[in-house]
Design a protein around this nucleic acid. Sequence first.
RNA 1: GUGAGCAUAGCUCAGUCGGUUAGAGCAUCUGGUUGUGGCCCAGAAGGUCGUGGGUUCGAUCCCCAUUGCUCACCCCA
Length: 419
Amino acid sequence: MIKAVTGTRDTLPSDIPKWNYLQSIVESVFSRFNYKEIRTPIFEDTSLFARGIGEATDIVGKEMYTFLDRSGESITLRPEMTAGAVRAFIEHSLDKKQNLNKLYYMGPMFRQERPQAGRFRQFHQFGAEALGSNDPLLDAEMIIMAYDIFAQLGLKNLLVKINSLGVPASRENYKNILKKHLEPFFEKLSSESKKRVDTNILRLFDSKEENDRNIMENAPLLLEYLDEDSLQHFEKVKQALLASRIPFEVDARLVRGLDYYTHTTFEIVSGSVGSQSALCGGGRYNLLVKELGGPDIPGIGFAAGMERILLACENEKSFTLDEEKLDLYLVTIEKGLENFSYNTALNFRRNGLTVDLDYLNRSVKAQMREANRTNSRFVLLIGGDEFARGEIVLKNMSTGAQKNFGKDEYDKILSEIKE
RNA sequence: GUGAGCAUAGCUCAGUCGGUUAGAGCAUCUGGUUGUGGCCCAGAAGGUCGUGGGUUCGAUCCCCAUUGCUCACCCCA
């Protein structure tokens, strides 16, 4: 048997309603904040991600689905959306059309990792990007939108964490201070952390090694070394969050994995999923647009993992959806009337009802069971004495009451069903 | 890439201290009025016990390998 490739999943008809529900909430929240949807290709030139996300990151280093196409181009399935959105923004000079572009997206992403609870190789994200303003209110807006979406889904067990990485100058300065501080402890660090001292020293705060954690416990924090502008920016973000009544905490150890972040970074984690608990993450990236060959324009964005969100919703039973119902099921009692039933069904379908009927030549009992199984509100019985008199019988499946109609009285039947 | 656990019917799982016809619940199908659902009752269908090899008179059960899944690490949404 051929099965879905490792880390990919089928979304079966029974799964679709909750996905649609999630998507409808995402769309409604984003559009109320006046974000416009953007769709970009699922694959891009490999160099876009190498430059945009950063060569040193795990995503680029070991997780991308990269291949040569038939003409020898190196192609990569998008592992995240920001790089593609920014590429499109630059390519179409969106900054020339309006000063601030507020964009959102939804779609599949690809990373070749070992699957785990809440992690897949093809997974889905929604997210937003605001390009063209350094206003801290936009930083807060991202967090508010994400939080509002989660809240509308009924999620409870959430924690908003924010931090600031400042600007490159103060960050470089701080990195040197941190490096000096760690020198006496260097030999005690885990081997992974030793490598990171040179490549990405901030990530040492992320280490789960007991020993590393102890060492980092007393390390100086970046927040203490931010320049004045960065501190003010961060302060305004916090004020906006306070005003929005979203609970948050400053986590000076929150360091995000992508190279392009400046100033604000944030993450919302759920206590209701497994160890992959980040439902969304994002931050400001004032250098990325320029890095990708565009104008010197600031940006901020976030991305949220839809599988993780739905997992949290299921574990918390945070919402329930109505059962899917049919308006009408046609039961043909008598052989030879199949065409009449079929055409009658078609007529009601064209009048906006959700209608089905038997295609398996089954007994009346089996047809009734099918009507029940599909949660049909009404059944139309076709055949027998009534049909010989020119009538068909409408049965209300919740009350069991039956009513006769002339077999051409579609309008009467329609209004009976619609009320 | 590393580690651990699991693999029996469509689904969720029993079970065999190695022995002949491998079970349950749910789901499916048929019947219980010649033309009426849900509940109930009766019955049916459905499994080469993940795959390959080994041990044995005999393996679904023990051993080895392999594949897949799950969870965790790394990292991330």
